[in-house]
Design a protein around this nucleic acid. Structure first.
Ligand SMILES: [Zn+2]
Ligand SMILES: [Zn+2]
Ligand SMILES: [Zn+2]
Ligand SMILES: [Zn+2]
Lengths: 168, 168
DNA sequence: GCACGAAATGTTATAACGTTGCATATCGAA
DNA sequence: TTCGATATGCAACGTTATAACATTTCGTGC
């Protein structure tokens, strides 16, 4: 029990290619379960984001989808898909980059905590239940009701740091 | 000692009018100490922000300063002032609002933690050293070096909640 | 005071991001 | 198949932020 909780509380997920089909399947199943349409566009947007492995902007998605569909799409199309995916918890907006990433734990209610590398652009999602509790405590002292939490930690990732140390 | 640390770690500051002149004086003194120019524009931008009491956008600042100076200013003017004020730690950008607020603790190295009310727009800054330590621990596990921390908690503030409960 | 480099600001244009409003098409259930 | 609800197409516009280059102001040494 203890190790399980530890893993869940402090899980670490790389947005890697291996997770693409898994992420899509999960989203599709959830939509079916909720009676919502997992349309071609919505699927494609989510797929691009899983494949990318880093936060990706709306207009870059627009270009990628234009390629994929063989015709130009317009901004509202992408923004509407992103809105849907965010509402369903499949996608989180990265405020510091005006960009979007798939959520690594769409099945759990949590504060997404992102580590974002300024050099390679990769992002890593973590959960930290203890930190959530601390903020909830602050909120209690303020009489504040928290609806949404944005936690984005920027800096340099392990691989960029090691490159920096060795290769210069 | 213990109570003092407690206060500093979990201090709560309302961006109230009372702090305007204090905030400006402190910024001016710090600039002098660092051999930097606290120019009319920089001062005016910071003053508007302290007076506002809530996150304020660059283009709204632009309009306010246009009024104040009796001539239209251009975006780069305001953005350059904001950049300077951020570099000096006097101002923090609120990523979720594309807006800016004065930092409540410009003299301390810390992660600014903001509670932002969606209804009245007011923001409250807090420090939470324990949460900072937890994220640092996560970073250690990832081999990640944190350079910048963005923590923004959105929801409803105490006064808005009480209004909601009573007056409807 | 004057010369000079550094810092700050002025100015114009444009990039990047996001939304509104309305028309059309598609879906899902009666 | 009809009909309301949902999703998409499309054009225009609004907001936020930056690039590039000219000009002014500041601070220092002469
Ligand atoms: Zn998440
Ligand atoms: Zn990296
Ligand atoms: Zn602060
Ligand atoms: Zn409020």
């Amino acid at each position: 029990m203890a190790p399980v909780n530890t893993i869940l509380d402090r899980k670490l997920v790389f947005h890697s290619l291996g997770a693409v089909s898994e992420g899509l399947r999960m989203a599709e199943a959830t939509c079916q379960q909720r009676g919502l349409q997992f349309t071609e566009i919505r699927r494609s947007v989510l797929e691009c984001m899983w494949q990318s492995g880093q936060p990706i902007g709306a207009y870059e998605l627009l270009r990628m989808l234009g390629q994929k569909f063989g015709r130009p799409l317009s901004p509202p199309t992408v923004y509407r898909a992103l809105e849907f995916l965010q509402e369903q918890g499949f996608v989180t907006r990265i405020e510091t980059k005006n960009a979007f990433v798939p959520c690594a734990f769409p099945d759990r209610d949590h504060a997404c905590v992102f580590f974002i590398c300024d050099q390679c652009g990769n992002s890593f999602e973590v959960q930290n239940a203890k930190a959530e509790a601390l903020f909830e405590e602050d909120a209690g002292n303020l009489g504040f009701r928290i609806d949404k939490r944005v936690i984005e930690l920027q800096g340099a990732c392990a691989s960029c740091l090691s490159l920096e140390a060795t290769g210069n």
